[in-house]
Structures are given as C-alpha cells and as structure tokens.
Write a protein that binds this DNA or RNA. Structure first.
Length: 251
DNA sequence: GCCAACGTTGGC
DNA sequence: GCCAACGTTGGC
C-alpha cells in the first residue's frame, strides 16, 4: 500500500491556504466523482499517509503544500445534498457511491514547486501527474518521488515524518521500495479501461448523474463556458474560506 | 481561449 | 460489446 499520495485541488475551489484556515486545519476531501480516484480513497488511503497538495488549473499549477490523512474513507456528504455541485441523486444513502477522507495541513510549500520544474526533473519520471493526458485527481506517489518533491520544495526534513512521530506513529517501518502506486495504475490506456470497468462493480451505482452534476457546479464558479471547474472537489462544506466549488477531483 | 486527452453516455 | 458523440480536465 502506498504511503504517499498526490491530491489535486483547484485553488479557486479550495487552496492549500484554505486548508490551513479551515477548522482544525482539516477538511473532508469531498467531490471526487471519478471511480479510479474514489477507489484509491475508499480502499488504499490510510490514516497517517502523506499527501502532496497540488494546485491544478492554477497559474501556475504546482505543489502548494503537504498534508496528512487523519480520517479514512467515509461517505462524502455532498453526494446527498441537492445544493451541492457534486450532488448525486442516484447515490443510495444505504450504500453511498462516493467517499471522502479527511486531511490535515502539515506544511506549506513556499514558493510552490511549479509543474514546469517538475517536468524538467528526471528523478520524477514515472510520476502519474506528469504522464501525458493524466487527469487522475488522487493517485499514489512512490517514496522516491515523495522525497524528490520535498527536496524541490526545499525541505531538509520530512514534515510528514515529523507529524507521524509527534502522533506516535511508527516511522520505522521503512517504505522500502515497495512500489505501491505504480502497481495500481494502469500501464496503458487499454489497461486503464479495464481498471475502470473493474472499479465500477464495486460501486454498485451508476455514475450517470454525476456528470450532469459536474457541469452544474461549474457554472457556479466560472462563468465561462463550459469550462471547467476546478479540479478539486473540495469545497464544500466547510467554508472557512471563500470557497468556490469544484468538480471532481477531490476537493 | 484553445485544444489534446480522456471518461461517460447511449444507440445499435 | 462497439463506438460515435458529447462533456470534462487541465495545461498552455
């Protein structure tokens, strides 16, 4: 199991700064409406896992902070609220389709590590975020890539490791070279399809409406066209910040 | 604003 | 089950 993850969030929806300003510096990573991302949240993201907080659809896009998972998979409340952009009328409260995890801010990355710099770093080869066409808003990060990104961010010590120690979690268990993430990601497109279809059964529900939803949301935040919405899904509920809404991604 | 790469939907 | 159309993601 991966111990590290990369979560995308559109800063217009929910920035790393918004997370720091949220109650308890925490927020439920809601709004994820993609099966592959949901499956990671539901099955693999565990308490104490480290999170690279990435700002997508930003100017410029890049790593804005480090967070930690403080609560594992539980139902995403926004799927049941008609007022939410990510409302999913098809989701059965007795068998929720969408889940969220709760994350807590650990350390900001200032200045941010921009996407261009990441693309130029050969040590980050293989990182899902950098794969052409990648849109997965929640994906695993290998220990090697995690260390390299922290290095680029200027950290001399891993703030996440410190957090674990402070909370009495075992940091001794070495990440060794487990190659977590990679194994779960599709190697190619064709496999991606297989992965997705495999994922569906688990959900038991259909995504159909989800899509509609996403578009709805968008309008709220952007005026333009179809635009996009933020990548994240987060918004939500809490609104400690100015919040906009986002789409799918996870906050 | 444009557009490449995707994911989802729905006809057949 | 295939695949065309459509909508979204997200970088540029």
């Amino acid at each position: 199991m991966p111990r590290y993850w990369l979560f995308k969030s559109e800063p217009e929806c929910f920035s790393y700064e918004a997370l720091e300003n949220a109650p308890n510096r925490r927020t439920g990573w809601d709004g994820v409406r993609n099966y592959q991302a949901r499956n990671f949240l539901r099955d693999d993201v565990k308490y104490g896992d480290g999170v690279i907080y990435y700002h997508s659809n930003a100017e410029p896009p890049g790593i804005a902070g480090i967070a930690v998972v403080v609560e594992e998979s539980h139902p995403d409340p926004t799927q049941f609220d008609p007022k939410q952009d990510h409302y999913d009328p098809e989701s059965d409260p007795n068998a929720p389709t969408w889940v969220q995890v709760t994350v807590e801010a650990v350390a900001p990355v200032t200045p941010e590590v921009g996407l261009p710099a990441m693309r130029k770093n050969s040590k980050l080869e293989g990182l899902e975020l950098l794969r052409t066409g990648s849109r997965l808003s929640v994906h695993p990060v290998s220990p090697e890539h995690w260390r390299e990104m922290l290095k680029m961010a200027g950290f001399t010590e891993d703030p996440h490791a410190k957090w674990l120690e402070k909370h009495g979690l075992d940091t001794a268990a070495k990440p060794a070279a487990s190659k977590p993430a990679a194994s779960k990601l599709p190697a190619s497109k064709s496999t991606a399809k297989a992965a997705i279809s495999a994922a569906k059964p688990a959900a038991a529900k259909k995504p159909v409406k989800t899509v509609a939803k996403a578009s709805v949301k968008v309008d709220v935040s952007k005026a333009k066209a179809n635009v996009k919405s933020p990548a994240k899904a987060k918004p939500a509920s809490k609104s400690a910040a100015p919040v906009k809404k986002s789409r799918t991604g996870g906050k």
